[in-house]
């Protein structure tokens, strides 16, 4: 575990894997909930957790670098189920990349259990991990200028669901009616870091 100073009041804690980042993030949330850590933002990402708004980042840095990455927390919460019609425009390409028929590609995706590793790109956009590494797919060579809201998409090791229409370069494998982001709802985001997710196939229209 490395703790890199970010300006005068933030730390970027770097670990060696996404799993470690998720475990560290869960442990930092626990410490904040128990009043052991005062910090404005705890932002997990692919291999790091950013702590922003710290009074004494140097002290926390020496404390963290002297300790081991905490073990992964027990999976307490039930998985959120997201209904998906696996009829995306890139499903055939993804299936070809995996060397399976389209229907089988949908089944592989729906059989996996996902965890929101981190959020970014847009409010409520989660980067979900859970597919075995052999199912990593490249981004599209040319991004789309408009990806419809509710698109279920793949890029690299991640699955994501577009909360609203936006440009995007991920491979679109399906659509959901689930509302990923509604700022009038509490909580506004359906997915937050650590949330477990299953995609449930529904019949296409």
């Amino acid at each position: 575990m490395r703790a890199l100073p970010v300006g005068d009041s933030a730390l970027l804690v770097e670990v060696s894997s996404g799993h470690e980042a998720q475990a560290l993030h869960a442990d930092l949330l626990r410490r904040r909930a128990e009043g052991l850590l005062t910090v404005r933002e705890i932002v997990p990402a692919a291999r790091t957790v950013l702590l922003d708004g710290l009074d004494d980042p140097a002290r926390l840095a020496s404390e963290l670098t002297a300790s081991e990455v905490p073990p992964a927390p027990p999976r307490a919460r039930d998985a959120i189920e997201i209904p998906v019609r696996y009829d995306g425009p890139d499903l055939a390409e993804v299936a070809a990349h995996w060397g399976v028929p389209e229907q089988e590609a949908a089944r592989i995706h729906a059989d996996a259990e996902f965890t929101v590793a981190f959020c970014g790109f847009a409010p409520g956009f989660g980067y979900l991990t859970g597919l075995p590494r052999r199912y990593n797919v490249p981004r599209r060579a040319t991004p789309r200028t408009a990806v419809p809201a509710g698109s279920v998409a793949l890029a690299g090791p991640y699955t994501g669901v577009y909360p609203r229409s936006s440009p995007g370069g991920w491979q679109l494998i399906g659509r959901t009616d689930a509302v990923l982001w509604d700022h009038a709802r509490v909580p506004a985001a359906l997915l937050s870091p650590g949330t477990r997710v299953r995609f449930v196939p529904v019949d296409g229209s």
């Binding site: 300006g7 933002e41 990402a45 922003d52 959020c119 970014g120 790109f121």
Partner: peptide, 27 residues
């Protein structure tokens, strides 16, 4: 991808620094 703070000076592939202001992306 990693978390970004206000005032971060990010250097994109063209090599010209960009200072992140209020509406900066979070990662």
């Amino acid at each position: 991808s990693e978390g970004m703070v206000l005032g971060a000076v990010q250097v994109p592939p063209d090599g010209r620094p960009v200072v992140f202001l209020a509406d900066h992306p979070t990662t």
